[in-house]
Amino acid sequence: MSTQPLTSQALNPQGINPQLPNSEERFYAPFRGPFDPCPPILCKTYVVPPQLFLGFQPPNLPQFSLPEALRFGTLWPALFSPYSPQNRGGN
């Protein structure tokens, strides 16, 4: 996904990673205490998948081909949410 490690400085106020336009990923910088026992996770990620934004699905949306639909698990590109393994703290 991103090419370099993200820090809280790389985030804009909305927590949207500028390196990944239109991404389903959101980021935030968790609190860092002065006496944390473990190395800090500077940046945490979570996913905002497409169903949060679609509303009632409009008619006549584009469709995947049937082999693609079977592989992806949905007929609708508007609902396709690819996911790649993440490390805690972002890749």
């Binding site: 698990g73 949905t74 690819p82």
Partner: peptide, 17 residues
């Protein structure tokens, strides 16, 4: 597992509808 995850996305959409 990615297929199963995608189905959760679709089901959530249908419940929202």
């Amino acid at each position: 597992l990615k297929f199963l995850r995608e189905r959760e996305v679709v089901h959530s959409q249908r419940f929202r509808e």
